[in-house]
Design a protein around this nucleic acid. Structure first.
Lengths: 337, 337
DNA sequence: TTGTACGCGTTATCAA
DNA sequence: TTGATAACGCGTACAA
């Protein structure tokens, strides 16, 4: 190598300067560093990876970057890994299990040392591959007691139990639910299950015609509310949404339809987007520190790489933010007026 | 290699199966693929990179993932690169030139074959390094005739000229400006310059006390408007914001202060977030297809890698979305009432 | 169409 | 503390 030649040392010594600096005399170290600087040289990652069997690469699979909660999780992880010299490689599954597998394979080929994956609704094949190659991994954005995986996130089921209990506590008995597609999405499934189990505890249930599943957009929220209000039967007094986007749509459509919130209808979201507390009425929702999930996941994986005995995972709490969009259930009398 | 052994061929043949499939007989190909499957083997990226001097890695440096416009750009690029077997590595500079350089160095060490960088306000050192290592690169999210770099994006200056002309056309003469920090940010600088040059053309200017620079948040928008309305002098009749977040804040604060929009004050944003058209009044803003910028940038870089003679760049148009938040300038009489 | 043999740029081992 | 040398896992001439 030219740097070694210029510094008048062997390539082994150059390597030591970068990997075990204290095993090299100050004099030599200085010479090597100077040579590297003038030659504009730095260690080649591929060579390093091949010789050391350490790639210094970690991977993360998320559904999509278009959702802020995942973007900030990636952001938190990337920063935490970068501080330890590990490059984070990103893959998007677009909510498609097949794509997730392809991405994981690609990362395995890259020699990822650790992986994070959003959710646990993935083919067993995916986790099998990770175990086969002894790649430590963590499931993020979801936390579930009894999960076979290490998970870093919050309990989606418990969070929606809390939302539902909040509404029940306000006297609501008739609910509508608007959520993202549940297919291949354990987080949304857990949320719906949380709603159902909380209701069941009070002898309640969501009527099938008040269950809506669709894209995570304002438009879907709008359409759902319109459809509810156009239908014959009795209207629900509360709508639980799968996230803030959908809830925002419900809020906007309610204004257009002249539905008083929370007078006639209570609405809840999830994520606590910046705009949520700015709406009029301000949106009741739950806040999760997703960047923190990313940081914790990175830390967890780094610990695993360091051979530390790691916990089963880490639970982050989702915080209910009660605002103006939820209120006491309208009495039958006032509803008639 | 075990796969070669199991398939009864040489390692060279295994390599061919993956890199030049048509140069291998169907029979052998099948045997190798079967062997790979049973042994759960796939080519090691580090070995590949070392032997071929092609890393199949590209990099992108963005300011932050917390801003949707950059997240979707990454998303578009990642998909386009993945379709060609190239892994995208992400780096966030947090609007700090020093961090950008560190990230670029790390990517160079990884042997990136191409790079995209948001904006051109980076130390010459950064672009020098890219040129030194002959890494094709593109500046994204900004397009400027006469730029020394290939750029894929829109003309920030022209976009803000258009916004300003729209307001001037409505009769406005007194403007306030609320933008993100201009330091180290050529895009925001170009936007402010666009405003100034459009105004100048009409013999107008922004009064220094009506220029606000701060974080890209609803809160900053709110604070700015409050400060304007509290100050003594004559109020501006239009506020041009650096993006939708800030404009949303202005809109919300205006409602709280009882300022009629657009009756007393016109407001413009930038980005056309999903919520922009849902606000009441709906926000006048500009839309840019940032995912498309990502796709185009990836295509541009892929072409460069393929040795195609590439254009200087590609301009994407920002589209003005005129909505309810901008209207005719209030006449002096009505303003007194 | 297939195999042989070398080299890509590091790190690890061992010896000095 | 340093150097020599053999891997690491692949691609690529070149030869067969």
């Amino acid at each position: 190598m030219d740097v070694a030649k210029l510094a008048g040392v062997s390539t082994a010594t150059v390597s030591r300067v970068y990997n075990e600096p204290d095993k090299v005399s100050a004099n030599v170290r200085e010479r090597v560093e100077h040579a590297a600087l003038t030659l504009n040289w730095f260690p080649n990652a591929a060579g390093r990876a091949l010789a050391s069997t350490r790639s210094h690469i970690a991977g993360i699979i998320i559904p999509t970057l278009d959702d802020q909660v995942f973007a900030s999780q990636v952001s938190g992880m990337q920063a935490a890994f970068a501080a330890r010299g590990i490059t984070l490689v990103l893959g998007c599954s677009n909510y498609d299990p097949a794509q997730a597998i392809v991405q994981v394979r690609a990362m395995l080929a890259r020699g990822v040392e650790a992986m994070a994956i959003v959710g646990e609704a993935h083919p067993a094949e995916l986790f099998d591959a990770l175990r086969l190659y002894r790649v430590p991994y963590a499931v993020t954005y979801a936390y579930r007691e009894g999960s076979p995986h290490d998970c870093i996130g919050f309990d989606n089921h418990a969070a929606y139990v809390e939302i539902t209990e909040h509404l029940i506590g306000l006297g609501h008995r008739a609910f509508a639910v608007c959520v993202q597609p549940t297919r291949d999405n354990d987080r949304v499934q857990a949320r719906v299950a949380g709603i159902r189990s909380a209701l069941e505890r009070h002898g309640l249930a969501v009527r099938p015609e008040h269950m809506f599943e669709g894209e995570s957009t304002i438009g879907f929220g709008r359409r759902s509310l319109r459809s509810i209000w156009q239908s014959a039967g009795e209207h629900p007094t509360a709508i639980i949404c799968g996230n803030d986007h959908i809830a925002l749509g419900v809020l906007r459509e309610a204004e257009d339809l002249g539905i008083a919130i929370p007078g006639e209808l209570s609405v809840t979201g999830f994520d606590d987007l910046a705009i949520a507390k700015e709406m009029r009425p301000a949106l009741t929702t739950m806040r999760v520190d997703t960047a923190e999930i990313g940081r914790l996941a990175a830390q967890h994986l780094l610990d695993a790489l360091d051979g530390k005995r790691v916990q089963h995972g880490h639970e982050v709490r989702a915080q209910l933010q009660v605002r103006e969009s939820t209120g006491a259930c309208p009495s039958p009398v006032s509803r008639r007026s």
